[in-house]
Design a protein around this nucleic acid. Structure first.
Lengths: 339, 339
DNA sequence: CTGAAAGCGCTTACAG
DNA sequence: CTGAAAGCGCTTACAG
C-alpha cells in the first residue's frame, strides 16, 4: 500500500493493463475512452494512491491549474476578503492560488511576475501605474492578466475597479437628501489615493447639489480614530453650524462620534454622520454608524471570472474593460434624522 | 527582444556559447562555474529575458520553491496575519506560497493535500484531529509538514500551538493581582474550542488563587458584541458584588463596557475589565480595553522556520515538537484600578 | 571547470 | 477507442 516513492502514470498503466496514454486520457476526462476502461484505470489509480504530477503536467501540457494573486500588501481585511472570495470560486474549478506581495518598484514587480509566470495559468494583479497593462502584455506575453484598481482615475488602464469615488458620492448624496446643506468632511491620510478619491466624491456631490463651498468644511485626518476625534473638536471650535459629517473611514467617524458624545452633541439629532468601509463595529456602536460598503467579495469574484474567460479563450485580451464594482450605502442610525 | 515563446535554457546556452548544463549550474548557483562563464550566461539570460521553468525544475529536480498553507478557513484577521508573516519570510528565501482552505471531512482534506503535494516542497497545516500527524506522514510520506493548532489540548499531536489557555490564565491572574476576588467570565460561543480553552484558563487561574467557585460567575456569550451587553445586564440583575470581568473576546467586552457605561457602572472604578484578541478597537475605546494578544505573526514565522528546517534536513520529522507560542497581556485603562 | 546524455512524468499528435 | 513515441525544459551523475 505504502510506496517508497509516489506512483506514476506508468504504475497505473501496468496495474490497469492499458497504456500510459490511456491513463492520461482518463485523468484528463477525454471523451474517447470507454466507460469500462475508465473504471479500470480509476480503480488502479485509487489502489495505488496515484495523483498526477503537477510539474509533469505543467511541463508537457502547459497547464498549471494555479492562478496567481499579486497585491500591494498581503494584509488586512481587503486582502483577506479578496482571497476568500477568489479561492471559493477557484476551488470549484480545480485551481489553486498562489499569493505574492510586491515591494516598491515596477522592476521588482516584473521580477516577481516573471518568476511566478511559469507556475500559473493566469494572474490577478493590483497595481497602480499608467500603461501597466500594456507593459505587462509586452513583458509577460503568455500570461492572461486581470488588472485591478481601487481608483476610478485609473479606470482606463485596468480591467476592474472598486469604486471609492462613487461610494463617497453616495454617502454625501444621502446626507444631502436628509436635508443637510452644511456638511463637513474628515479627510483620510494625506497623499493616500483612497482618501483623495473619497474627498473628490464628496465634493462632486456637494457641488452637484449646488452647495456653496463656504457651507462645507474639509478637515484633516489620518484614517486613525484619534484624528477623527481631533477633527471634530477643531471643527466645533471653528463653527457650529455644520449639521452633517462624512468621514473618509469608519475609524475616524467613530472617533468623531466619541468626541460628540463626550461634548453633548447628539448624533444624529444635532449632527448626522456617515463613515466609509463598513467595518464590523459600525453596526455595533450606538448610534450605529451609516457607512459605505465596498463589495470586495464581488470584486474578487468578478476578477476571477474575467480571468477564467481569458484563459478559456486562450487569448490574452488587451482591451481593458474598465468595469466598475459599485459600492453600497448602509444606512444606519447615525444618519437617520432628517433635517 | 520580444519572443514568440518563452526562451529556454537552450537559447541561453546558444547565445552564451556554453552547454545547457552550464546554464543550469549558473542558475543553481553551483560553485563549480568560473566567474567569467557565470557572467556570460547571466548576460545572455538577461538579453533573452530568460527565467527557468518552474515545471521543468520541479520535474527533474524535485524542488518546487513553493510551500502550501492550508487553513480551516481563509478568512479574517487570523488568516491574514498568518499569511502576511509567513509570506515575508518565504519571499526572502525565494519561496512562493499557495493557499488552500479545507472543507469538512478528513477525506476531503487528504484529497486537497494529495493534489497540492506535487506543487509544494512543504506544508503548513492547521487542522484539529488526534493522530492527524501520523496519518499525514503515512499518506503523504514525501512532504514535510508543520502542524498547527490553536488548542493546547492537541499539543502532543501538533508541532506548534498558539495558546488560548495561557492567554486566558494570564488575563485572569492579572485581574486577581489587582485585588479582585469576585470575578465573572463571559464565555465564548458554545461548542467553540477557543471559547472552551479560554474558560479553562480562567478557571485554572481562579482555582489556583483559591477563589471559591461561589465567587465566580460564568456568563453565556456568543463572541458577538450584543451577547456581552446582555451578559452583564443579566449579571447585574443577579448580583452586584462582582468587581472584575474577563471576557472571552474583545467584541463582547466592548458590549459589556457599553452596558456598564449606559447604566452608571464605572470601568475600571467599579468593575475592571479584560478582553481577548486585542483587536484594533481595544486601544481606541475609552476606557481603553485590556486584552490578550495572540502573537499570530510569531506563530507564522515559527511555523515557517520549522518547515524550512525539515526541508533542509530532507527528513520528514515525525517527532511532534509541541512548541507553544505564548500570548501576551496588554494592560490598559479598563483594568488599571487596584482594589 | 565543462559537456553529453539520461531521465523526471506527463500530453498529444499520429497511426492503426 | 487505444497505443507507441516524441517532446516539454530542466537537473545531475558520469566522463573528461
Amino acid at each position: 500500500m505504502k510506496q517508497d516513492k509516489e506512483p506514476t502514470i506508468y504504475d497505473v498503466a501496468r496495474v490497469a493493463e492499458v497504456s500510459i496514454a490511456t491513463v492520461s486520457r482518463v485523468f484528463n476526462k477525454s471523451p474517447l475512452v470507454t466507460e469500462k476502461t475508465v473504471k479500470h484505470v480509476l480503480d488502479a489509480a485509487r489502489k495505488l494512491g496515484f495523483t498526477p504530477s503537477a510539474s509533469a503536467r505543467g511541463l508537457s501540457g502547459g497547464k498549471q491549474e494555479t492562478i496567481g494573486i499579486v497585491l500591494p500588501i498581503l494584509y488586512g481585511n481587503f486582502f483577506s476578503d479578496l482571497i476568500y472570495s477568489v479561492q471559493a470560486l477557484a476551488e470549484d474549478r480545480g485551481y489553486d492560488i498562489v499569493v505574492a506581495g510586491q515591494k516598491g518598484s515596477p522592476d521588482e514587480l516584473f521580477a516577481t511576475l516573471k518568476k511566478l509566470s511559469s507556475k500559473i495559468d493566469g494572474l490577478i494583479l493590483m497595481y497602480h501605474k499608467e500603461g501597466l497593462k500594456e507593459e505587462i502584455i509586452r513583458r509577460c506575453p503568455r500570461i492572461p492578466v486581470v488588472l485591478l484598481s481601487r481608483f476610478v482615475r485609473y479606470r482606463e488602464h485596468v480591467d476592474l475597479v472598486l469604486d471609492n469615488f462613487t461610494g463617497a458620492k453616495l454617502a454625501t448624496e444621502h446626507l444631502i437628501s436628509m436635508g443637510h446643506r452644511k456638511i463637513a468632511h474628515i479627510k483620510g491620510e494625506e497623499g493616500n489615493i483612497d482618501a483623495l478619491e473619497r474627498m473628490e466624491g464628496f465634493l462632486n456631490a456637494t457641488d452637484a447639489a449646488g452647495i456653496p463651498r463656504s457651507n462645507i468644511e474639509l478637515l484633516s485626518g489620518t484614517f486613525r480614530q484619534i484624528s477623527g476625534y481631533n477633527a471634530v473638536e477643531e471643527l466645533f471650535r471653528k463653527r457650529r453650524d455644520i449639521t452633517a459629517i462624512f468621514s473618509s473611514n469608519d475609524a475616524m467617524a467613530l472617533g468623531a462620534l466619541n468626541w460628540m458624545q463626550q461634548n453633548g452633541v447628539n448624533v444624529p439629532g444635532d449632527v448626522a454622520m456617515c463613515g466609509f468601509d463598513d467595518i464590523e463595529f459600525a453596526q455595533m456602536v450606538r448610534p450605529s454608524l451609516s457607512s459605505v460598503y465596498l463589495n470586495t467579495q464581488k470584486f474578487g469574484e468578478t476578477a476571477f471570472r474575467m480571468l477564467m474567460d481569458q484563459i478559456a479563450e486562450k487569448s490574452v485580451s488587451d482591451i481593458p474593460k474598465g468595469m466598475v464594482i459599485a459600492p453600497e450605502l448602509k444606512r444606519r442610525e447615525s444618519s437617520s434624522h432628517a433635517r
